[in-house]
Design a protein around this nucleic acid. Structure first.
Lengths: 194, 194
DNA sequence: TTGTTACTGGACCATGTGGTCCATAACGAA
DNA sequence: TTCGTTATGGACCACATGGTCCAGTAACAA
């Protein structure tokens, strides 16, 4: 063995994800990527193989680090499971209307853009979606145990519904800058938990 | 005056929309477009100005011909407003799981891909979304008058919710090929109408 | 027949595309 | 010091990109 790796692969992957997230897969060029990653073209191909392989890797990374945590973490941080769910939806509305960050959810964006052209990506995207569902499922069951979510509801169905509603909210928010429409949507969504 | 127009502008626009719909804006090249439209590059630029102007025109066209009709039409064709709403959601599930047409909704795809980079497009996309909302709003009010949708609900909020839920369903369906998840989502969505 | 117009195909443009290759440099371990 | 490895920058590739321009052709109205 000689000379250990210099640049941080994870960090480069993170930067690449940010670019894909901000611009979309097709609209992102190699130039954009190596610029953001801070590595040379040669290193790029040596380490990540191709633009497409890199892309797949970023979805994996998102699933492992962002997706699997963000929903779960929000729920764990909140005073109760139901409050956690509410917090997620209201947080999305706030984030998408107030500041400039309208990127939405990476896996949701990928689903819209590439999921049905790109089999390899589709599998990973499905994993990401299922991961959200699982987090919601856990929250719903906990909420039901604590009596703040109707016990007559099917927790799996509710989790799937919440996952879909969240994705829908993100799409709406990208077009519709009117916060009232988003707030209305969230209100009705959250009412289903009663 | 001499020689009237030969190729049908509307038809060409329709074809262009189909390509953008199938591939997305960025992934569509001029080559793709003029091939599908069946016109020469020269005519393309003479008539439509640029790829981007053409794109905007396709969104307008979608709003005028597809979007404004599809939801309204489904509702009008159904035996009752509520049945119409149900029909739309179940239709999406069937369409996205059974046959190969996973393109989803044009305006929804555009919202995800370009809405927040592209101001000009965003306005038109917002119009499209509002159009869906309006159709749902009408259906909800009619359903309430006929007693099949809870009269205690705010029809505007419900319409916005349904619009969001539909968009969410489309995103889910692109990734998730599992029909049960989609059916679950639809069931909970439709339960809000009670 | 003539004039006007709609349209085409192809040449041409600069630049960008994803991708390969390689000589060279930096560096750490043996 | 030597050797193996990691990295770089730049040359190079073929082709695609969106876009312009124009000579030529086809069709119709007057």
């Amino acid at each position: 063995m000689a000379r250990p790796r210099q640049f941080n692969t994870d960090e480069a992957l993170e930067q690449a994800m940010q670019v894909f997230w901000a611009k979309g897969y097709e609209a992102t060029s190699l130039h954009d990527l190596i610029g953001a990653m801070g590595i040379s073209k040669s290193s790029f191909y040596d380490t990540f193989g191709s633009k497409h392989e890199l892309f797949l890797a970023t979805i994996d990374r998102y699933n492992e680090t962002v997706s699997s945590c963000s929903v779960s973490r929000a729920i764990d941080a909140a005073p109760s499971p139901r409050a956690g769910i509410e917090c997620i939806f209201r947080g999305v509305v706030e984030c998408m209307t107030k500041d400039g960050d309208k990127r939405g959810c990476y896996v949701s964006n990928c689903a819209s853009e590439v999921a049905w052209h790109d089999e390899a990506a589709a599998g990973r995207i499905a994993e990401g979606i299922e991961c959200m569902e699982t987090s919601f499922h856990r929250a719903v069951r906990q909420g039901q145990e604590q009596g703040e979510i109707g016990k007559d509801k099917d927790p799996r169905a509710l989790a799937r519904f919440l996952t879909g509603a969240l994705n829908g909210l993100l799409v709406m928010a990208k077009a519709h800058s009117n916060p009232r429409a988003l707030q209305d949507m969230v209100r009705v969504t959250l009412d289903t938990l009663d």
